[in-house]
Nucleic acid binder design. Structure first.
Lengths: 204, 204
DNA sequence: GTCTATAATGCGATAGAC
DNA sequence: GTCTATCGCATTATAGAC
């Protein structure tokens, strides 16, 4: 039925919510099914076991995080449409909003972070899908900025890292503040100032 | 007895080890006491309950992380002994070695990170003892650098954040690589390059 | 697709002997 | 300070009826 949410989705969304508010191992099947309004045994019709729930959640993260960077083939066109500073500013806003502004994605980000030392998959996601994918994309971007004569001559990978690593820390902090329902305005301002500071330092 | 390790310390060290390899809630009292070689009931002679173990671990982290920054009153003297770039380079090495090179402290850092959404204390530790304390210290450092005419005129807090936030991400990555027993040489080189890149951009 | 019933084990914690 | 014994309850997961 269009618009209605299947039991399977309800289970998954409830699991995401509960796991993100404590941890995978602290949440029981009973906790999840109580919230959904079904018996424990019914969950096993939809999911093989508790671990499969987490596997699904990790898979959602991997699928979603892929969407943050535009495909390389679109890059040249996009760069003709904006200034480099605008491009960076917009990219960062997009990155932040993908991870932090959707309640579902920010919950999943918390889960990945919490489970990084319990689940090898979570570590791979952080190292590869989050860190390396982003750095690789930005490396290409900064290489193009260099070719176009916008910026000074630094190794593109160093620029990518110096640009993106502060952002990872800001996101970490953002997820905690958001969880505590504290104000994030200062941090959002900081994100903008970061682009300004960074670009000002490397532009020609 | 001098040199011998008390049962209480053995319990605590075992808890640190096991919690850091999965998570607080995934490790049982039974797991810990089996490893120590005592019965479960004996643990309760030394610790009120399971939560008290975690409280002790968080307290150790707070005590240790305090030691990373030298006291403000020593700062002026230290700054006469080194160049600003040397000072930053040494400070970063100290920071990294405090957190990552002691097996105990790196385990505790992993625990704090894993429990950040399960335990409010862990969030406070990250936001206050780790982030804010460090930034506040560096803010003073960069303000002094400005007064001494070493660096260009940027807001000291912005400099502190731009300098330290990439380091937080590198430490995050370091803890994962270390846990996976992967090579960290590239990351250590990156830490040095970061100081060089950053200082080169802001020096007068 | 959801239910009842239940198995089999594990959990944190306590009482009281030595 | 460590032990044995035990309590009461929670846990994941399955079998089989409807």
């Amino acid at each position: 039925m269009v618009g209605s949410i299947s039991t399977k989705d309800k289970i998954l969304n409830t699991a995401i919510d509960l796991f993100s508010r404590s941890s995978f191992s602290a949440v029981s099947i009973r906790d999840i099914t109580r919230e959904v309004g079904i018996k424990e045994s019914s969950l096993y019709y939809h999911f093989k076991n508790k671990d499969e729930l987490l596997d699904c959640i990790f898979e959602i993260y991997r699928e979603e995080i892929k969407k943050v960077c535009p495909p390389f083939e679109d890059l040249d066109y996009i760069l003709t449409q904006t200034t480099p500073e605008q491009f960076l500013q917009q990219g960062l806003q997009k990155f932040k909003s993908y991870i932090c502004d959707s309640p579902r994605m920010s919950k999943i980000s918390r889960i990945v972070s919490s489970e990084q030392f319990s689940h090898p998959q979570a570590r791979l996601i952080i190292l590869n899908d989050l860190y390396e994918e982003n750095i690789r994309f930005l490396e290409v971007v900064f290489a193009k900025f260099k070719d176009l004569g916008y910026i000074q001559d630094f190794p593109a990978r160093l620029l990518a890292i110096e640009y993106q690593y502060p952002v990872f820390s800001m996101i970490t902090q953002y997820l905690i503040l958001q969880f505590e329902q504290q104000d994030t305005a200062e941090l959002e301002k900081l994100l903008q100032e970061h682009v300004e500071f960074f670009f000002h330092k490397i532009k020609k």
